[in-house]
Amino acid sequence: MKEASLYEQLEMYRYSLGIAISDVTEEEANIIPKGFNNNIRWNVGHVLVSTDAMILTMAGFPSTLPEEWGQYFMRGTSPQNFTDETPTLAELQEASQEQMRKLRALVEGKLDTPLANPFELPKTTIYTSGDGLTFCMFHEGLHMGQIQGIRKLVK
């Protein structure tokens, strides 16, 4: 498989995410429907922060996002703890596109760069930026499903 194909696939997932949230209002993005733990805004932010960590910062590359975004969107966080400083959906949408532009420039040809601390998951371990990139495609699809489910309930 060519490395370019991996970036194209990730960009396709991110494009689909952009389409799914393009008509979601800030108010709708903040609703946590019954049966869900998070809202659309948290899911989008979580995808961005996770992608940044697993492909870039855990391997020593510079982040594409403000450092403080992790406190709102990393695993184990909750929209219940959002503040006035939490990025809006519009800010997340803008950062999403910017992240895709920067990510490829930062890691192209360097996907074998090891993570400082391998990330263990059930049945596998993420050792390199490339491993992180392929996992992020699955991860983004998982959260896209959550976003689509919430979207149906809030629109």
Rank of each mutant, 00 (worst) to 15 (best):
Leu89His: 03
Gly60Val: 05
Leu10Pro: 09
Val24Ile: 15
Asn117Cys: 00
Val24Glu: 11
Phe61Gly: 06
Asn30Pro: 02
Gln97Ile: 13
Glu26Met: 14
Leu153Lys: 15
Asn37Asp: 10
Lys110Gln: 11
Thr86Trp: 08
Leu133Glu: 01
Asn117Thr: 06
Phe61Asp: 05
Glu94Asn: 14
Ile40Leu: 02
Ile126Ala: 02
Gln80Trp: 00
Tyr13Met: 07
Pro33Val: 01
Val44Asp: 07
Gly60Asp: 06
Leu103His: 01
His143Met: 13
Asn81Arg: 12
Leu48Lys: 08
Tyr72Ser: 11
Thr88Ser: 15
Leu111Gln: 12
Gly149Tyr: 02
Leu142Trp: 04
Ile40Phe: 03
Pro62Ala: 05
Asn38Ala: 05
Glu120Gly: 06
Gly132Pro: 00
Pro79Asn: 12
Glu91Ser: 02
Glu26Lys: 13
Phe61Glu: 04
Arg104Lys: 14
Phe119Glu: 06
Ala90Gln: 15
Val154Lys: 03
Pro118Cys: 02
Glu94Gln: 15
Asn43Trp: 06
Thr64Ala: 08
Tyr72Gln: 07
Ala59Phe: 00
Ile150Thr: 01
Val47Trp: 05
Val49His: 07
Ser5Glu: 10
Ile147Lys: 07
Asp23Pro: 02
Ala105Ser: 14
Tyr127Glu: 05
Thr125His: 06
Leu65Lys: 07
Ser63Ala: 05
Ile21His: 01
Glu108Val: 14
Ala95Glu: 06
Thr77Gln: 10
Ala53Pro: 00
Gln148Glu: 10
Pro87Tyr: 06
Phe138Met: 04
Leu106Asp: 00
Tyr7Asn: 09
Ser16Tyr: 15
Pro87Met: 03
Met58Ser: 14
Ala29Gly: 02
Gly70His: 12
Ile126Phe: 04
Met144Trp: 12
Ile19Phe: 09
Met144Asp: 10
Met137Lys: 06
Glu98Pro: 08
Tyr72Ala: 11
Thr134Cys: 11
Ala53Ile: 03
Ala105Ile: 14
Arg104Tyr: 04
Met12Ala: 13
Thr113Ile: 09
Val44Ala: 12
Asp112Met: 00
Gly130Glu: 00
Glu8Gly: 09
Thr125Asp: 05
Lys152Trp: 05
Asn37Gly: 12
Ile19His: 10
Tyr127Ala: 02
